[in-house]
């Protein structure tokens, strides 16, 4: 059973390839956006079950800002996808308690495993918090 996915990614090639991979994995990419504002718009308009967030996106606000917003307002699992694997970025990202952290370059296996974990975790947390 696939999920409805929001991709936030400013690299066109990556976004295209990621969408194709998710389709292969039977997920439904509901939208691909490259900025914070566009992401919020989509979150408001369509049902999203998992958000894949690149950290460096177009505009002033980053994927981490977006994660905070999602955590507070949308209560859906989100996974960071980034080419940054330095301590400082990871530390900043971890403040938002992400459901996963995919370091580029990632493969299809990485995606499917992190999705499973994200969904399980989300169910668990939702069960606790009601």
């Amino acid at each position: 059973m696939g999920y409805q996915i929001l991709i936030v990614e400013d690299d066109q090639w990556i976004a295209e390839s990621l969408s194709e991979m998710l389709e292969v994995l039977n997920h439904d990419v509901v939208s691909v956006v490259d900025s914070y504002d566009a992401a919020i718009t989509m979150l408001e308009e369509v049902k999203v079950e998992i958000a894949l967030l690149d950290i460096q996106i177009r505009g002033e606000k980053t994927g981490i800002d977006l994660a905070e917003k999602i955590k507070n307002d949308y209560h859906i699992p989100f996974i960071f996808t980034t080419a940054y694997a330095d301590k400082e970025t990871i530390k900043k990202a971890s403040v938002q308690s992400p459901y996963g952290y995919l370091v580029k370059p990632y493969g299809m296996k990485d995606i499917s495993v992190s999705f499973d974990f994200a969904i399980e975790n989300h169910r668990f947390i939702s069960g606790i918090t009601g």
Partner: peptide, 24 residues
């Protein structure tokens, strides 16, 4: 170095994704 590795990983991500897609 951080920026460079980021910039190098970005095209690598696409390359890796598409080799996997090809393979699939």
């Amino acid at each position: 170095i951080s920026m460079t590795s980021h910039e190098l990983r970005t095209p690598l991500t696409t390359i890796k994704s598409n080799t996997e897609l090809l393979n699939y």
